[in-house]
Amino acid sequence: MTLDFSETARYIQADILDSFDEELEMEYDDARLDGLLADLGEEVPKGIDRRLYFRELLRLQGELVKLQDWVVSQKLKVVVLFEGRDAAGKGGAIKRITQRLNPRVCRVAALTAPSERERTQWYFQRYVSHLPAAGEMVLFDRSWYNRAGVERVMGFCNDEEYEEFFRTVPEFEKMLVRSGIILIKYWFSITDDEQYRRFLMRIHDPLKQWKLSPMDLESRRRWEDYTRAKEEMLTRSHTDVAPWWIVEADDKKRARLNCIHHLLEQIPRGDTETPQVVLPEREYNANYLRAPVPREMVVPPVY
Rank of each mutant, 00 (worst) to 15 (best):
M154P: 00
C157Y: 07
L131C: 05
W144G: 06
R142C: 08
E151H: 12
R126Q: 10
V150F: 00
F156S: 01
M154L: 12
Y127D: 06
Y145D: 10
L131W: 05
Y123M: 06
N158M: 01
R126Y: 13
G155H: 04
A134M: 04
R126I: 12
A133N: 13
G149K: 02
R152D: 00
G149R: 01
F156G: 00
M137I: 15
M137W: 09
G149Q: 04
L139H: 05
D141Q: 09
N158S: 12
L131F: 15
Y145C: 09
M154H: 04
Q125D: 14
R126T: 07
H130N: 11
E136G: 05
V128W: 14
G149Y: 06
N158T: 12
V153N: 06
N158Y: 00
D141H: 13
S129L: 09
D141K: 12
V153P: 07
C157I: 12
N158E: 03
A134D: 14
R126D: 08
S129A: 13
A134G: 14
H130I: 00
L139K: 08
E151A: 14
P132H: 10
A133Q: 15
L131N: 07
W144I: 07
M137S: 02
R142V: 06
Y127S: 08
Y127G: 13
W144K: 09
F124D: 10
D141N: 14
F140Y: 13
M137N: 01
R152I: 01
